[in-house]
Design a protein around this nucleic acid. Structure first.
Lengths: 128, 128
DNA sequence: GCTTGAATTGACTTTTACGTAAACGCCGTG
DNA sequence: CACGGCGTTTACGTAAAAGTCAATTCAAGC
């Protein structure tokens, strides 16, 4: 496991810009350490970036991603906070399950559309 | 099956604003018919709205949603166009499958986070 | 010591997806 | 007929998520 990654290494690995990484830092999503002024990204930062991009692909906003990331952190010590966190996690899970339903439905409709196309091709006598 | 829905009926049903529906019309996603100047939404428009909102929940942009919607239409008559459409559909499906992987991973991590919370509660001697 | 290339910061710009406000049309009711 | 309610258009505004540009800084290599 590498100790540090440079900002350009991560931009290449994830195909994002330096501006994006700095933006995520400004937003408090990642906190790379500094050597002088240059940012050093640890494996944990790298993993966070991975999670952020995953969240983005799923259509979550930066704020929602921030919330999700906080859920992965060490659970709090106080009972009330713990219960609150569990409620939040449950909500996010429900959210994701809704997305999963949406996804399956969309996939099914696309399958149908594809099949119509193939049928149409067969009608036209095209060797598939 | 109702013949027409008014704009406010749809805003209530889908919990969106009239502005949003007009915006979708401006963007060419729906084409409600008119009686005078008032819009009349047919069941097909209503179904499109449903698909649009599903797409939004999955994080697709308006442009992407427009593309997807066009895929549901009658397949074109020309072979080249048909093959192109099939390629596009395949791409979207790949896209959705990526989202599904993202979704499952995020769900798994949330499950883990939840479990940590529950464990912590047990440590604190809380009766779950 | 000078150049070169990678990083940094800060300011300004852009795109998307609507929100909001103004100003008006149409129609049924008391 | 005045009104309230629903609908319309036009125009401007805005928040989020970066992109872009300019001015600097810094370290490395020759």
């Amino acid at each position: 496991m590498r100790e540090y990654y440079s900002i350009t290494e991560l931009t290449r690995e994830f195909d994002i810009s330096t501006r994006t990484l700095r933006f995520y830092e400004d937003e408090g999503l990642i906190q790379p350490v500094r050597r002088g002024r240059t940012r050093l990204f640890r494996p944990s930062d790298r993993h966070l970036v991975r999670q952020i991009l995953r969240g983005k692909r799923l259509g979550f906003s930066i704020n929602e991603i921030r919330e999700i990331i906080q859920m992965y952190r060490e659970p709090p010590g106080e009972v009330g906070q713990l219960k609150l966190l569990i409620r939040r996690i449950t909500e996010k899970k429900d959210d994701l399950r809704q997305k999963r339903r949406d996804l399956e439905e969309t996939l099914a409709e696309l399958d149908q559309a594809e099949e119509s196309c193939v049928e149409r091709l067969v009608e036209l006598g095209v060797n598939t």
